[in-house]
Amino acid sequence: MSFINYSSREINCKIVYYGPGLCGKTTNLQHIYGKTNPESKGKMISLATESERTLFFDFLPLSLGEIRGFKTRFHLYTVPGQVFYDASRKLILKGVDGVVFVADSQVERMEANIESLENLDDNLKEQGYDLKKLPFVMQYNKRDLPNAAPVEELRKLLNPDGNTEFDACAATGEGVFETLKGISKMVLIELKKGG
């Protein structure tokens, strides 16, 4: 649910990074934070456990510039990927305008990817959203690892509908901004349609 403020001439959109535990959601946001100039970003907030697993969410506010005299702001959130944090994931999805699914390319994480994608679908449905209608991009992360499954295989299992997809190595930043641009564009195009 984007927020259009005619008074301050601002538009705010919410993007959520979803995916299984340790797939690299927080790393995506950290890279974006590290590479964005100070005037375009706010503080990054990470509510995490002592072992740096996301406990509730990460939050990063970005401003992209102006469209037609409106300041465009994106609020990026990550969910905690660990299965037992489902209640928190549901809360963070509230009011979402676009979702990035970060898949872990490692062969042994395939079940976790599928489970997390189904969980996303369920949680969206519960709130009256339809994943097929929501701006959505797929990111195949950890392409650098030797045990990464071939992209064709990931596509067959996780993206049979052919949503926009990106290869990434969030650890080095490869594909991270491409993914962000991809989802941001889709959200803005949705807004143009009248949301």
Binding site: Y6, I67, R68, T72, S184, L188, K192, G194
Partner: peptide, 19 residues
């Protein structure tokens, strides 16, 4: 009106320019 959104008129170029 849904059509009164200030974004109804934005173009792909406007969006590209942001990036």
């Amino acid at each position: 009106e849904a059509g009164s959104s200030p974004f109804a008129e934005i173009t792909d170029d406007d969006i590209d320019n942001l990036f």
